[in-house]
C-alpha cells in the first residue's frame, strides 16, 4: 500500500524539465528530485498547489494510491 508520485509523467506531458519546474515553483531541484523519485515522506499543500498550478493538472494526476 503506497502513494505513487507520477510527477515524471506529468512533466513529460507538459514537456518541462525538473530544473525549470523547480525554478517556477520556487523549490530546490534536489527537493523536487526527491519528490519525483518517490523518496519523499510528505508533501506540503503549498507545494502540491504550486505543482498543480504550473502543470495545469489536478492533485490526482500527480499522486496515485496503490493498494496491495
Amino acid at each position: 500500500m503506497e502513494i505513487l508520485v507520477n510527477l515524471d509523467v506529468m512533466m513529460a506531458k507538459r514537456k518541462i524539465s525538473l530544473t525549470e519546474l523547480a525554478q517556477r515553483i520556487d523549490i530546490s531541484p534536489a527537493n523536487l528530485s526527491i519528490l519525483k523519485n518517490n523518496k519523499a515522506r510528505a508533501i506540503r499543500f503549498s507545494t502540491l498547489m504550486a505543482l498543480c498550478h504550473e502543470l495545469q493538472c489536478q492533485p490526482g494526476d500527480i499522486l496515485e494510491f496503490i493498494d496491495d
Binding site: 519528490l35 519523499a40 515522506r41 510528505a42 508533501i43 506540503r44
Partner: peptide, 8 residues
C-alpha cells in the same frame, strides 16, 4: 528531522 528533510 528525518521526516522533515523528506517533506517537499
Amino acid at each position: 528531522k528525518d521526516e522533515l528533510d523528506f517533506t517537499v
